[in-house]
Design a protein around this nucleic acid. Structure first.
Length: 189
DNA sequence: TTAATGATGGGCT
DNA sequence: GCCCATCATTAAA
């Protein structure tokens, strides 16, 4: 992709809706990270919604130093460290103070594949970015990126290339509370 | 193909 | 001290 230095990112105000509404809308949008003159990333194919009413959410027990950016304005990255070795990235949604975010669980990479393959230790292509921590590893995202705002240069959230794809809702993965909610959204072939 | 398990450290009770 | 919004490896079938 030959992207101009100055992109026109479009209006991200739709992120101010609640995460349960935004998470399915994000399927098909494209997340890229700019490293020098390279772009790394691709289309989002799996998301999960989290909010403060939700016992599985980091924001459930209120704002803490860790979750501060999750309670900030929409359109920022919330990155957390988990299981002693992994990072996961979220897009903050909703209104400031709500503690609302969408976890990015998987993308279909289409830019920077050589870099992604190297970072992912040359695993099979279908295992490069098919989990939240794999995605962060592939894009080189760490806790240092938490709080960064989208579409200000380094992280780009771009609209789908074609029509909005079909989306399927399922139960979320890897949580132990509020598991009944159908707040995981995947691209429906 | 699926199932079980160890790695590893910050956050919070 | 317990709990993870996980992953890669190994084992079983």
């Amino acid at each position: 992709m030959s992207l101009p230095a100055k992109v026109s990112p479009g209006n991200l105000s739709f992120l101010e809706a609640g995460s349960v509404r935004v998470a399915p809308m994000l399927i098909g949008w494209r997340m890229y990270r700019r490293e020098g003159d390279r772009l790394i990333g691709g289309a989002i194919v799996e998301t999960e919604a989290y909010n403060q009413s939700d016992a599985a959410s980091h924001s459930y027990r209120g704002e803490t130093p860790r979750t501060r950016v999750m309670f900030g304005p929409a359109g920022h990255l919330y990155v957390y460290f988990t299981y002693g070795m992994h990072y996961c990235m979220n897009i903050v949604t909703g209104r400031e103070g709500e503690g609302d975010a969408v976890l990015l669980r998987a993308i279909l990479p289409d830019e920077g594949l050589d870099i992604i393959r190297a970072r992912r230790n040359h695993r099979p292509d279908h295992e490069l970015t098919d989990g939240p921590a794999k995605l962060c590893q592939a894009l080189g995202v760490t806790g240092d990126d938490s709080g960064k705002r989208l579409n200000e240069g380094e992280f780009l959230l771009l609209p789908p290339r074609g029509a909005q794809p079909r989306v399927r809702a399922t139960q979320r993965i890897g949580i132990t509370r509020d598991t009944h909610r159908l707040w995981r959204f995947v691209l429906d072939e």
